[in-house]
Amino acid sequence: MQIIFILEQVLNGLLIGAFYLLIALGLSLIFSLGGIVNLAHGAFFALGAYLTVALAPEIGFGGAFVVAPVLVGILGLVIERFLLRRFYRADPILGLLLTFGLAMVAEQTMRMVFGAAPVPFSIPQELRGQVLIGDFIYSRYRLLILGVAVVAVFGLWLLLTRTAFGRVVRAGVQDPDMVAALGISLKPYMSAVVAIAVGLAALAGVMTAPITGVHPAMGAEILTFAFVVVVIGGLGSFWGVVAAAFIVGVVRGLAAYFYPPATEASVYLLMVLVLLLRPRGLFGERIQKFE
């Protein structure tokens, strides 16, 4: 009987992992191409959730699902054009300070506009309910999250591997100087990558608004997890991040089952372990410009 319970936690962990992926992939992309550790990534996630709460009464949850990530993506374009772009070749610490500052400004702005207390939001009536598979109960809404995450991740993978756009981005990650020598400017690609990455974070925010408290600090909470996933997965590796997200989800679920106080700590322990054995992360590639 116990083995079924453990299996339940493993499956649940995989689902949670898919959700982490939406945030971690964007974080990894921005770092791989621009060399910027985007500490403001969580703020875009929170903004997605708040926009959902604000827009849903007007255009419905479905409308917010489309509009909120687009709006946040556009905001990402603006921030990339006027702020991030100045720091690609600068000392990494400057980019870190910039995005850290952005995150603080964003969190405080949300606190001033929406208040510190969580703003109420529920799962839309038509998406409520549970699914029973044998003895395994699951929330219908979470299965929907899984579907959205899988489609988004697969779409991103297609974009990066099967299109001309993706080839330039991947080349830019490996050797930006060679790309420049070939007469291709990476600037518009970087803008697009930032817009897509923060749009994905906002999409995760939209999906999470109905099931967790929507409050200003929600971005900071999720960001640490996304970082751990990127570090475990290894920089520059798409599938590394995917694998890491699922591993993190499962480890967390098993910790909750066997030793609940370590539910969150288990993930950091895993990171320490991976870094000791494989300092580059599970599937980290050797990236010339970071050596």
Binding site: E8, I16, A256, P260, E264
Partner: peptide
Amino acid sequence: PTDLTDFSPFLLK
């Protein structure tokens, strides 16, 4: 843990 946001593992338990 105080920073836990996802209760699903505990709801299953």
